[in-house]
Write a protein that binds this DNA or RNA. Structure first.
Lengths: 207, 207
DNA sequence: GGTCGCATCAATCGAAAGGTTGAGCTCTCG
DNA sequence: CGAGAGCTCAACCTTTCGATTGATGCGACC
């Protein structure tokens, strides 16, 4: 019997997951959590944690995942979320998630992924898997740390001059970085670069 | 008996909604739709449409809402989504949505909202309602529809020239809109405007 | 029936951003 | 140690953007 912990802040989603799992005789719901903290506290009760990435407030699902996998004899964490940006996926994988599913997955795929996760096998949504191999095999389009840093400040609305001051650079250097960023992203303006990088999950609009 | 149409591209959410509605004797599920087109086609079967705003592909929930409310003797549309930015809310309301609920709503609130929507009464999530009164009472800092539209294209990385073509305007008009946007947001560049508007939830980085 | 907000457009000017070329520096890796 | 990648900077030029001023038409509201 596989004990599952449902960690999601949406009552309706929890209800849907309950309904899906109820039909599976080898799966049982050990507990539910509506916050990341709650999920960490109840992680010991389960073999598999179904983890959302965004909660209304408090720590993120990625943080909770990291905390759970750091426990002694931790359950496997299967991320189940709506978001599929590079930033989200990488954060979750790096936090120790065993699998990564999207909420538009079919119920059959979900229960299959739970069973896989229970024995430590990883299950990835098709698009997610493609994105990962894409990135590890072909780091073209990957920005350097400095480029990402500069682009992040651009996304915050700073001018080249402001950025140069913030980073103790000359404007020429900031431009150089941006020129390379534009080339890598296939764009030709700062706003387009921000849009492209956001779309690819290279940077994240912080709210 | 209130006939409900569930329009959501996530099987798990649909399952959760089924579970919630099953417990209510005066509510019945007339149909389900996994795409916006499907929702429009099946709208005639229902008294209330539970409409998600984002579908994997194809038209958005807002567009579907507009199409449905344009039907003869249309059902009431109750938007049920995860997103609560000004842009989403306004688009839905302008499209003719009767209510706007967030997916972190409790089941009781949801069924209450459905009953309200069935008789044409509007039901808004607390945060959404606050945002609307905020905006109508104190329109300082609020962007007009056209300004929001232009700013959205700026956020997509388009140049003023591209925007003017997209909207069948002159560049001068685009600039005029942006000048007013900058003034309202207290910024002085397009990237800063995008950052500020994103932070305030006026626009959303769409992917 | 006038006022106000909104949307539309024009012309101009200085500032900022983008493109190009070229170069020096440090670090890592084989 | 040489090659390559990443980071740094300079000079120059073109394009775009932002600021300003001013104008027209339209609908809403009192």
């Amino acid at each position: 019997m596989i004990r599952v912990l449902i960690a999601d802040d949406h009552p309706i989603v929890r209800s849907g997951l309950r309904a899906v799992l109820r039909g599976e005789p080898d799966l049982t719901i050990a507990a539910e959590a509506a916050t990341a903290q709650d999920a960490i506290a109840k992680a010991g009760l389960a073999d598999v944690v179904l983890m959302d990435l965004r909660f209304g407030d408090g720590p993120s699902g990625a943080q909770a995942t990291a905390a759970i996998t750091a426990l002694p004899d931790p359950p496997h964490v299967l991320v189940l979320t709506t978001y599929d940006t590079d930033a989200d996926i990488l954060a979750a994988i790096e936090a120790g998630a065993t699998g990564y599913l999207l909420k538009d997955a079919e119920p059959e795929d979900l229960v299959a992924a739970i069973r896989a996760a229970a024995v430590g096998r990883s299950a990835l949504a098709p698009g997610v898997a493609a994105r990962l191999v894409d990135r590890t095999r072909n780091p073209v389009g990957a920005l350097s740390a400095r480029e990402t840093e500069v682009l992040g400040l651009v996304a915050d609305g700073l001018s080249n001059l402001s950025i140069s001051r913030r980073l103790h650079l000359s404007q020429a250097t900031v431009k150089s970085h941006l020129v390379r960023v534009y080339a890598k992203l296939g764009v030709d303006s700062r706003t387009a670069a921000v849009a492209a990088a956001t779309a690819r999950g290279l940077i994240r609009p912080h709210r």
